[in-house]
Each structure stands twice: as structure tokens, then as C-alpha cells.
Design a protein around this nucleic acid. Sequence first.
DNA 1: GCTTAGAGTTAAAAAAAGTTAAATGCTGAC
DNA 2: GTCAGCATTTAACTTTTTTTAACTCTAAGC
Lengths: 231, 231
Amino acid sequence: MSKIKILLVEDDPNLGQILNEYLQLKGYDTVLCEDGESGLEAFQQDKFDFCILDVMMPKKDGFSLAKDIRAMDRQTPLIFLTAKSMKEDTIEGLKLGADDYLTKPFSMEELLLRIKAILKRTNSNGGAKSGISSYQLGDLLFRYDKSVLERPSGDVKLTSRENELLKLFCEHLNETLDRSVALMAIWKDDSYFNARSMDVYIAKLRKYLKEEESVHILTVHGQGFKLVKID
Amino acid sequence: MSKIKILLVEDDPNLGQILNEYLQLKGYDTVLCEDGESGLEAFQQDKFDFCILDVMMPKKDGFSLAKDIRAMDRQTPLIFLTAKSMKEDTIEGLKLGADDYLTKPFSMEELLLRIKAILKRTNSNGGAKSGISSYQLGDLLFRYDKSVLERPSGDVKLTSRENELLKLFCEHLNETLDRSVALMAIWKDDSYFNARSMDVYIAKLRKYLKEEESVHILTVHGQGFKLVKID
DNA sequence: GCTTAGAGTTAAAAAAAGTTAAATGCTGAC
DNA sequence: GTCAGCATTTAACTTTTTTTAACTCTAAGC
């Protein structure tokens, strides 16, 4: 089993340094970023098993960063560090899908305990580390783990782009998925050509989903797409 | 617009009584239940716009009740009342989909503020999570979820602007919808050109609705438009 | 009744998305 | 290493959606 990889985003160089060294000492693989923007870049570049985000940071605060991370990925555990015990912040943070919350000052042991508790929980109850791995879409069953879309008329083997894109849609079921979010999540780069490439994949997915009446990808012009399931 | 209906579940008779009277005084329609089980029955019986649940209760605690409510209904706002500031509880509760959290003792004003804030938020961000996804307009059925207006003479596929605008009208049925409100809601920017663009869409919607005699978009000169349905 | 700002109508321009196929890139078998 | 086969990107072209513009009509104030 390889090392658990943690993204640590903390603007205070002292604290950041200390946390970073401590976590590495404890056997984690860490990446330390000094602000929200570089944190986002790092998250797009690599796969992480855990995120620790400071709330107050220059360029992009922790909540904003969490929102972007959550748009790309729904399950990576995420905890916030904050200066004061602000109830409003706690609630905001937790609604963004945080798993926990630490108020400064906190002890290293406390942080470690929280991390372990969360990893234990997410690893055990989800089976695999990567959360949900299959989605029911009417009569279709999308098996992300197997890259297959099981249909009454016959299964379709999905390519990795198709697979990732459909998963992203499933994670955002009935919500608009912004073009840029999808592009950054899958292509790691929001550019004209990648956008056109995505359009091609949208067409492919539509073709695969065509036989299921209750499921549609509809386009939100100028913004993105929405996978809609009607119950 | 009718009164907002709140389900209040609180086992302490004193606090329950006080909250109930206060909320009614403030113009809400309330139903008070003394335990989780009767709370669940009440929720099954009626439609509510808001739920306030005590966490510690006999028969069925607030979390269990919340879970049951969420199983039936994903969007009705829901806040918890709890005796102590227990972080674990807060997190559990928010993961069940709570919108907020109040620690006893709290002031009536605080409760009221939270309720208003949440209602405002959930009403405004309509987009993805808003409950209703289809509207009956005489013989026409507007299916927001599918972006389709179903008419006896044949269905019309709506573009995303048409879809959003018609939904906004349906949400404001028989009320004047201000130009600026619609522009901000859909175009995110209240400017001359967007206003003219909207006028073009008004014309399109009128054309689509023409065959249904009982439904009209009428203009309120200098202010906005009003979707009127005659029963 | 005249004036004017707001709204209605229509069509063209511009931007975004859909479609299809060819070009390119990648991977694994040989 | 080379080649076949598939995945992905690029490209050219089409269609749809949205915006802009020009012109007309109407309501409200004077």
C-alpha cells in the first residue's frame, strides 16, 4: 500500500512548515501550498487522498477552494483550519462538504487523530476509497469501476474520457455542470480545443443514453450541461 | 402568497409552546409535535416549507426523524435545535442535509433570523435544487426538468433561456415579475442590451403560449411582466 | 394631440454547440 | 522497433441559440 497523499494549503509559512514536516514524519506524503490558487492547481495536477485547507488565505480563501475541489471531486476527505471558532464559518464549511473542522490553536496529535478517524470512516463505509462506483440511471447501470454502461440492449464499454465525464455528470445529477469545471476536472486545462473535444464526448454519451427515456443531457447554453433524471 | 408552514418538533412542552406562539405571532403557520414519531406522521400528512427539529427527543430522535424526512423529500429546509454544543452532533446533523443548527439556549430573534436567511437562500437559488420541476398551465404542461412545453398541438423544446424565464414566471404566477429581478436571476446583469434580449424572449414565450386561452403574459409598463392564469 | 421612453417585432450578426470525419497519438502484440 | 487498432484531438462544416440592431407601436405625461 502506498503512502497516503495529503494536500495541505496554509498561508502561514511557520505553521505550514511545521504541519508539513510533522505529517511527513508520521508517514504521509504531503504537498504544501501557500495560497488557494496554487492549492487548486496542485489538486488538479495530482490525485490526493486528503485535503487540509486553511480558511483565511490570500488570493483564494479556503471555502472558495473547497467549492472548486468539490465541483471536481465529491469524495476526497477535506478538513478546514480556522483562526477563531466562528459558528457561521463552521456551518458554511460543513455545507460545502467538509468532513471536519479544526480551530486554531490545535495540537498536532489532535489533527492526526481527526485525519485517522476520517480516513477510517471513509475507507470502511464506502468499500473502495473512491466513494460510489456505480450509478443507476433508469434502466441503465453505469459502472464507473468497470468502465461499462450496462443497458438492456447490450453493454457499452466506455473509454476513459467517456467514463470520467459520465461519472462527473452522475456526481452532479440534476445540477448544471459548468464546462470549465468539467474541463479542469478531466482535461486539466480549459481551452478552446479541449472544449471542442468535450463536445464530441457529449455527443457520444448522448448516443449511449438515448434508449433510456428518463435520462437526458441537456445543454445550458453558454454555461455547461445538465444530466437530468426524471423519476 | 399563503403563509409559510413550519413543522416544529420539540419535546419540552414549555419551549415548544413558546416557540410555537412566537412563530405564529410572526406570521408563520405552525404545527407542533412532541416527539419524533408524531413529527414524522405530521410531515407525511401535510406539506411543509420548513422543519425545526429538536435533537434529543423520546421515541424518535431528531437525527432519525431528519433521515426519514430526507428520504421522502430532499429540499425542505431543516434546522436542528440541540442542548449542548456538541461538535460531533453538528457534523452528523449537517451531513444529513440540515441547513442550520441552533444551540440552546438561543434567542427567538436568532431563530427568526436563521429561518429568514435560509428561506431567502433556498428560494433564490432555485436553479438545481428547487423542488417543483413541472407546472400545469391550463392544457399546457411546462416541464422545466426536460426543457419542454407539452401542448395538445405538439411539444416545444425550449432553449435554456426560454426555460429559465418561463420557470421564473411560473414561480411568480399571477404576480408581477420585475424586469430587473428577471434580468438579475437569468442574465446576472441588468443592462440595456440584456433587457432588449429579454423582450425578444418574452415574444417567443407569448407565441408558445398563444394557443392556451387561459394563460397570458401581460406587461406592467415600466415595471415588468405578469404571467396570468385564469381558472 | 404631441412627445418620449418603454415595449413589440423582425431580421441579421455573432457566438456557441452539434456533427462527422480525418489526423494524430498511444499502447500492446508481435 | 514496428505495426495494428483503438482513443483522442483537430478540423471543417452545419445548426441552434443568443444578442444586437433597426424600425414600429403604444402608453403616459404634458
